[in-house]
């Protein structure tokens, strides 16, 4: 995975602490997008052949190979279901997100 870490945002106390510009450190994430999701993709790694089509097609770039398996970054997955639909072996199931 090659995304910036989620950091805690500390609101500037003094005006001189505000970014000038607006220009700020690149890749500064302060919150995830998991709340957008109603369905969650769940991968059955035992049946996965590792074709990596889901990795290629995920519009959010949250699916990636990791230690011989496929990993999903649920912090930023929006639950669009593309991975599940395009999986040739149907090993990604969309499950209802539990609150």
């Amino acid at each position: 995975m090659n995304r910036p870490p989620v950091r805690k945002y500390i609101k500037p106390k003094h005006i001189s602490d505000y970014p000038v510009g607006p220009s700020f450190s690149a890749g500064y994430l302060t919150s995830d997008n998991s709340g957008w999701r109603t369905l969650r993709p769940v991968i059955d790694n035992d049946s996965c052949t590792g074709c990596l089509k889901c990795y290629l097609c995920c519009p959010e770039g949250v699916i990636y190979p990791k230690e011989g398996k496929i990993d999903i970054d649920y912090d930023f997955c929006k639950g669009c279901g593309i991975c599940s639909k395009i999986c040739r072996n149907k090993v990604i199931k969309m499950e209802k997100e539990k609150k």
Binding site: G21, P22, S23, F24, S25, A26, G27, Y28
Partner: peptide, 10 residues
């Protein structure tokens, strides 16, 4: 060295 994100929204 220290990439910037610029011209963002507020």
């Amino acid at each position: 060295d220290n990439p910037r994100n610029m011209g963002f929204s507020s």
